[in-house]
Design a protein around this nucleic acid. Structure first.
Lengths: 226, 226
DNA sequence: TTCGCCCAGATTGTCGACAATCGGAGTGGG
DNA sequence: CCCACTCCGATTGTCGACAATCTGGGCGAA
């Protein structure tokens, strides 16, 4: 659904997808250096296609490259994360406003159902926090789809601008705040059902702002500990 | 200023920059196929670096690639342009709101001065419509800088998401609407001087919305003629 | 001791050649 | 006359080797 099949196209494409996945899931640590020869062997291909994959990732800002000094996974410091959440607030708010007028009744019903599943999983306690996070991702992406704005969809959910997804994986597995989040999701769906775009936008912005505040505190604590 | 030096890094980097520039200025037509061997010879390099450059552009969505069938310049149809302007409205509005509280007095004064130059050039009649468009670009970018949000700056002005710039070059040279645009710019600067973020956002959104309406009509006319 | 130089080892950048695949012209049959 | 098949040229995908550059450690002189 969100994770697309490895795409049996060129080797460079599969490498780009695998690397992108490894990066957003945190399997590759931030700032980690990416050795071309090593990765090429791991993926069973030559260095040519692998370099192309790295250039692709560089284009979407998942990695940083310094000439003659290698490429590294991008580092999301506190300031960058703050910036990202600010942009997300604007974009997802916009998506909500549009979705309120553009989504079909069926889509909204499906969204509501998604939250039911979500609640179910939370009751069964936290073994599967990961899938919970994945579900949250799905919720936000479905709304982006509902906006009927292709660019918005790409920025928020698709392979493009994975940065937004990256911080989620990095933070949301800590799994605080799942219950208030669910509550807020319900409120948003209610606003969509009433076709109240302004309210939906307001609620979404508040939801994301709250998420950032929570994550921000968490970072402060981590840094205090370290 | 906005156009960065060709960057004497790797060959792939200079190719990426030259191609990106050719695309956003319209020197390379939309949908045009890009032949690897031909471009490589034109730039005086092998196909390796050139392919990397294409992969980079693919990452930033300036070109589309179909396996075993070559890469083409992205095509901005009417729907895509509409989507882009919608996103720009949200992002530049946000930039304005932030800039109202973040910009220094000096920066705002400089912005006002920029508009003076701008007005000067308009009075000298339109030989240099191109530079007028460049000036408009600068105005918007300076505000993005004023937001102090790095991600916003990259999305709106820097090399990333050149799509936004691309449609400008393609449309704004027609040079209608320069005077009302200048008027709106003045209003925005006035709002910034008063540190009224809400008003500044409103004005910017209206400004961009108006620009889209104007461009949309122009496209309709073109399609009607064709 | 400490600073600077120099030299390997490793890593990145570039090229040329070869294999795989696609599109289209030409041809033959219905 | 039209459709389908085949083959060929052109273009893309991939690999291996070589050149250029950086990094880190050892050595010698002040």
């Amino acid at each position: 659904m969100l994770i697309q099949v490895p795409e049996q196209g060129t080797l460079a494409d599969v490498a780009a997808h695998r690397l992108a996945h490894s990066i957003v899931t945190g399997e590759l640590a931030q700032g980690q250096k990416l050795n071309e020869a090593e990765l090429a062997e791991r993926f069973g291909m030559g260095r040519g296609p692998l370099r192309e994959a790295l250039r692709h990732l560089e284009g979407m800002r998942l990695v940083t490259r310094i000439p003659n000094a290698g490429t590294r996974v991008v580092v999301l410091d506190r300031q960058t994360l703050s910036d990202i959440y600010g942009v997300r607030e604007a974009l997802e708010g916009m998506a909500c406003r549009l979705a309120a007028t553009q989504m079909t009744d069926e889509e909204i019903a499906k969204l509501s159902k998604l939250l039911d599943n979500h609640e179910e999983q939370i009751k069964k306690v936290g073994g599967k926090v990961y899938s919970q996070s994945e579900g949250d991702l799905d919720f936000h992406f479905q709304i982006a789809r509902g906006s009927r704005n292709q660019m918005l969809m790409e920025m928020l959910g698709s392979e493009q601008y994975q940065l937004l997804r990256m911080c989620r994986y990095r933070t949301s597995r800590k799994a605080t705040r799942t219950k208030p989040a669910l509550q807020q999701h319900r409120q948003i769906v209610a606003a969509l059902e009433q076709r109240d775009g302004e309210l939906a936008e307001l609620l979404m912005r508040r939801h994301i702002h709250g998420a950032w505040k929570s994550i921000s505190e968490m970072i402060d604590k981590e840094e205090g500990a370290a």
